[in-house]
Amino acid sequence: MATDKSNIQLVVNGILNENPIFRLVLSMCPAVGISTTMMNGLMLGVAVLFVQVFSSVTISIFKNVIHPRIRIPTYTLAIATWVTVIDLVLAAYMPEAYAKMGIFVKLIVAFAIITMRLEMFACKESVNASFWDGIGMGLGFMAGMMAIGFLRELLGLGTLMGYDILGFKPLLFFVLPCAGFFVVGLMMAFFNYIEIAYKKAKRA
C-alpha cells in the first residue's frame, strides 16, 4: 500500500499537519527541557532529523527481511545505532554544542516519534517515500523546537541565535526551565485557536 502523496506533500505533512511536537504531541521532553535558545532547538533538530531519516531509510530497505515477531527490537536497534553515530560525531566535531545538549542527544533513542514513524510509515512504504517522510518529520520537529526557542530566547534573554536583538532582558522567567511548560502549553492553545477559527471561516 504505497502512499499517493508526492515528496513535497510528505515533507509539508511532517511540518504542518502532523507536526511531531504540536500536533502529534510526541517528544515533549526536549521541547520543554532544552528549548531555551533557538540554537539549541536547531542543533537537536539536526540530530533528530539525521536519526529519523537514516533509521526510516534503513527500515524501509530491510522491510522485507525483518521478521514480524522481532519488529520492535529491530527498530530499537536501528535507532540506537544511528543515535550512537550522531552522538559520537557531535561529541567529536562540535564539543561545545554537544555539551549544551547534554543527555538529550542520547535520549533521542527513547523519542516516541521516531519509533512511531518506523511502525506507521517506513515499514510499509518505499525507500524514497520513507526518506521524504523522515525529512518532513525531522524538519517538523526542528521547526517546533526552533519556534519554542525563538519565543523563549527573545522574551527571556532578548537575543536570537545568540545575537542581541532587544538589548535588554525582558523576563528572565522565560529561560528558566519551568517556563517551558507554560510556553509549550500556550503555543499549543494558540494553534488550536487558529484551527478552530480556520474551521469556522471555512464553514461560513
Binding site: A179, F182, G185
Partner: peptide
C-alpha cells in the same frame, strides 16, 4: 475550548 486536553495539562504541569 482551545486549552482543553493537553495544553491545559502543560499549564498545570508548569
Amino acid at each position: 475550548p482551545t486549552f482543553k486536553g493537553v495544553p491545559i495539562a502543560f499549564i498545570v504541569a508548569g
